[in-house]
Design a protein around this nucleic acid. Structure first.
Ligand SMILES: NC(=O)c1ccc[n+]([C@@H]2O[C@H](COP(=O)([O-])OP(=O)(O)OC[C@H]3O[C@@H](n4cnc5c(N)ncnc54)[C@H](O)[C@@H]3O)[C@@H](O)[C@H]2O)c1
Ligand SMILES: NC(=O)c1ccc[n+]([C@@H]2O[C@H](COP(=O)([O-])OP(=O)(O)OC[C@H]3O[C@@H](n4cnc5c(N)ncnc54)[C@H](O)[C@@H]3O)[C@@H](O)[C@H]2O)c1
Lengths: 210, 210
DNA sequence: TTTTATCTGTAAATAATTTCACAATTTTTT
DNA sequence: AAAAAATTGTGAAATTATTTACAGATAAAA
């Protein structure tokens, strides 16, 4: 299968969220309008939508309702995907609170920590177990997606546990850059907030010079 | 000025963090070693380091201490940059707790909210003011970098307030994609965690098909 | 119904980023 | 002191991503 680029997938995700808001206002949308509210260009939007096999109508644009359905069919899993979060500190708690119930096809079913004060409690309605129980829970609940928001030093061990238990995607928020062999066939998304802050500092310096 | 790409800046930020850890272990590092621990390639590392004007030694590699200093000189602001965070919910609190004291050249000096229960308190040691006070504080404290982690609907108004007050960089965590005119000369970093989750779901689906 | 205006879908061109490949350099070995 | 081995720095090639340009389509106007 000829996969679509990561950049395109990110934009489709954004388009859908923007379209959901527009749906209340209008029926059809032009590529240049969708571009405007998504910080993109009309050509980029049309290129991205090409992958969906959904055709817009010249002079009229895209029917928002159909387009949302089409993006959903393309992006979303057929069945609900169960997700687990490992490391329930400030960030883990923010993620749990934010995502619980937000994306209908992604269900946060469990979180894990080693802090005995957290184990056994519910966080944003999601039960927290000890890390030791993770492999079993992942198998039991058929979890394919794992999020790591533990302390940095635990990252590698957690990812190895996840992969051994059969996880197919890892979203890693720690500073520790994971290195997963291609042969494992695991999708890895590194979210490096520190780099974003340092980038902002660098471009601030540059902007001030101008 | 011929600026270095955002991708390169992100990698330099990561290299530095990795190098800080290696510093305890060894004096010199080869491009292929730095690549390994940064999830990159030797050629990419050498290309990125080219911008620094710091030369490695053939057969010996890069002197870690000097390389760190050189990346710091390149990336970091000359003086400490003051940073503010607007919207101190779960995510804002996580950011405040994590970054306070972590990057010596970035100082979180204030945060803002509209929730009267938060205004007047300290969060991770950082004073929380009402949003109304933001323009004055930004000017008073010479703040160039602003972070938005409010609710989505407030994003645009907050960014406009920031820009009017003289902010030079915005890091936006909300789902609302800001659109800032080039002429404003403001650096914008959108961090779209929702897109990362949906991307993971998409590539999970793809991986499962294989 | 015919014309006009404007939007879509996509081929081709352009731009940006990464990888390749190798001369130059330096250390280590002999 | 010379030869061998290994790594750097970078031009050139390859790859990936975005933008341009326009034929074809269709709605709205005449
Ligand atoms: N908070 C941020 O803004 C931010 C920014 C950039 C990066 N990060 C990264 O995200 C991660 C989490 O950040 P945070 O602010 O929530 O940190 P935190 O210290 O609040 O939380 C870490 C949690 O992980 C748990 N933990 C530690 N080892 C574990 C293990 N082996 N298994 C399971 N859980 C374990 C701890 O008990 C704690 O609850 C950190 O690694 C940090 O580097 C955070
Ligand atoms: N938490 C996550 O994992 C996550 C993931 C993706 C995106 N986001 C985005 O990040 C933002 C913050 O997330 P959160 O989980 O911290 O939400 P939250 O609801 O916990 O916090 C939002 C905070 O913003 C404050 N606020 C609202 N309007 C404001 C205004 N006009 N000025 C100043 N403050 C204002 C609220 O009082 C509250 O304290 C949200 O917009 C969300 O879309 C969060």
């Amino acid at each position: 299968m000829n996969s679509v680029s990561q950049r395109t997938i990110e934009r489709l995700s954004l388009y859908r969220r923007r379209l959901m808001i527009e749906l209340a206002e209008m029926d059809y949308i032009f590529s240049h309008q969708l571009a405007k509210i998504s910080n993109s260009t009309a050509a980029q939007v049309r290129r991205d939508l090409m992958h969906l096999g959904y055709a817009g109508v010249p002079r009229k644009g895209y029917k928002i309702k159909d387009l949302i359905r089409c993006i959903s069919q393309f992006l979303d899993p057929a069945k609900i995907e169960n997700v687990v979060i490992v490391g329930v500190g400030n960030l883990g708690k923010a993620l749990l609170t934010f995502f619980t119930g937000r994306r209908p096809k992604l269900s946060l079913v469990a979180c894990f920590d080693i802090d005995e004060n957290k184990v056994g409690t519910d966080i944003a309605g999601v039960p927290c177990f000890h890390l030791n129980e993770m492999p079993q829970k992942i198998k039991e609940l058929k979890v394919n997606i794992g999020v790591i928001s533990s302390t940095e030093n635990a990252t590698k061990a957690i990812s190895e546990m996840m992969i051994a238990a059969g996880i197919k995607s890892i979203i890693n928020f720690t500073c520790f850059p994971l290195n997963i062999a291609d042969s494992e066939n695991v999708f890895l998304e590194q979210i490096d907030i520190t780099a974003s802050f340092e980038k902002a500092a660098y471009f601030t310096k540059l902007n001030l010079k101008k």
